[in-house]
């Protein structure tokens, strides 16, 4: 097994775990975390795409993509968190 295979398969496995969580979890926060896990898996795969057999330098393009991806996912997570908080406060207010 080459390192890129290991990383690649791990990435896919992480994505799969996240996917299962996103589909099965009930709690809003858990589902969000599961989606985060998915993003980690996809990021892994992109990092693997950058790997080259050592003396060659790694491909910079996937790294740039991963960084962009992280920014995008962070903002999405922020929005989702804000929504969850707002919903939580609306629901607790109604329960009182």
């Amino acid at each position: 097994m080459t390192p890129d295979m290991i990383y690649g398969l791990t990435g896919i496995a992480v994505f799969a775990i996240g996917l299962a969580g996103a589909l099965c979890a009930q709690d809003r926060l858990r589902r969000l975390l599961a989606l985060k896990l998915c993003s980690m898996g996809a990021g892994f795969l992109l990092v693997v795409a950058a790997w080259r057999v050592p003396p060659d330098a790694p491909d910079p393009v996937p790294h740039a993509l991963v960084i962009t991806g992280i920014v995008v996912v962070v903002s999405a997570t922020a929005v989702a968190l804000a929504l969850i908080r707002r919903l939580q406060s609306l629901e607790t207010r109604d329960d009182d």
Binding site: L19, R31, L35, L45, V48, A49
Partner: peptide, 30 residues
């Protein structure tokens, strides 16, 4: 409240859809 609930559900679906797409992008680059 209904809109927020629907919006959150939409958000999850959207993120998941985009991530599946991203995974596909990774495969293509690979």
């Amino acid at each position: 409240r209904a809109a927020l609930r629907a919006g959150l559900e939409y958000m999850y679906a959207s993120i998941l859809g985009a991530l599946l797409f991203l995974l596909g992008v990774g495969f293509v680059y690979l």
